[in-house]
């Protein structure tokens, strides 16, 4: 079983400032969702609402069709793992793992197996762990939670590249093994892009785009070739970005229909895909004024 998510007209205020403004969002069950946004866009706040870490100022947060707030049956099957984890720093690694057993579905043996795999010192205090090891501990607790909705908020920060790779593989193996919903919030977009099925882009407290990853891939193209030819083809298209080096120009455009594609090819222009990260950078650029 896996959980769907529904936010209806959700607003969250920190004193006078709105971290989320009137957000409406539906996340389908059983998929891997990417949650992207610039710093301060509201990603952590949104995830905090989905895990009942916070109560919205207004609106409704539903998980698996029911309200998440104070709903033990649902919230016990939802896990939000934040960067560094929510541990009692004076605890040992082993105790921190065992605290996870508050969750009925927590798989202690799996957690200890992962701790061994990632070389976590069980008897060390959490406060004495390096940032990377602390992130590993958080990731392990998230995986072992065996949650129906598992959310990882920048949990990979501090992990070195091989550890991150091992984490992604473990996450994917668990996903293949057991149907559940995953939300990954990250700034390392290219690293996770291949795993994502849907992508939500938050910007300034609102949902900027929410599409299947294929839709994002179709959303743009990079045209590279002689500057004049590129300019000619790009006329009438929404240009996200331009780069010029001597007589060669590269233009990132949003939509490229079949006739334009043929015309570009005939003009000797190379057509390349737009990476999710590039698209994200352009879509959330301050110059786009909310896009």
């Amino acid at each position: 079983m896996s959980f769907s998510v529904s936010l209806r007209d959700v607003t969250l205020k920190y004193r006078d400032s709105e971290a989320l403004s009137n957000v409406n969002l539906e996340l389908e069950a059983g998929k891997i969702h990417g949650l992207l946004g610039r710093n301060g866009a509201g990603k952590t706040t949104l995830l905090s609402l989905l895990a009942a870490f916070r109560k919205p100022t207004a609106g409704t947060v539903l998980v698996n069709g029911g309200p998440i707030w104070e709903n033990a049956e649902i919230v016990s099957r939802v896990a939000l793992i934040r960067e560094g984890g929510d541990f009692d720093d004076s605890d040992t690694v082993k105790s921190s793992i065992e605290t996870g057993e508050i969750r009925p579905s927590f798989d202690r043996d799996y957690a200890l197996k992962l701790a061994d795999k990632f070389e976590l010192p069980l008897n060390k205090k959490v406060r004495s762990l390096s940032r990377g090891k602390r992130s590993v501990l958080a990731a392990i607790c998230g995986l072992a939670a065996r949650a129906e909705l598992a959310m990882f908020d920048e949990v990979h920060l501090g992990m070195d590249a091989p550890t991150r790779d091992a984490f992604y593989k473990e996450l994917l193996a668990d996903y293949m093994d057991r149907e559940h919903t995953i939300v990954l919030s990250t700034h390392l977009i290219d690293e996770v892009a291949n795993y994502l099925e849907e992508v939500v882009i938050l910007d300034r407290g609102s949902v900027l785009r929410h599409e299947p990853v294929e839709a994002f891939q179709r959303m743009g193209a990079t045209l590279t070739g002689p500057a004049d030819a590129v300019d000619a083809v790009a006329v009438g298209l929404e240009v996200l970005a331009e780069q010029r080096l001597g007589g060669t120009k590269s233009a990132t455009v949003t939509v490229l229909d079949a006739p334009t594609r043929e015309r570009a090819a005939a003009s000797g222009i190379e057509i390349g895909p737009v990476g999710l990260q590039d698209l994200f950078i352009h879509l959330t650029s301050p110059e786009r004024d909310g896009a």
Partner: peptide, 16 residues
């Protein structure tokens, strides 16, 4: 002070 956030993060409700 130290356990409340950890317990809630591990799915305990406030009432619990």
């Amino acid at each position: 002070y130290s356990l409340a956030p950890s317990f809630i993060a591990n799915s305990l409700t406030r009432r619990e």
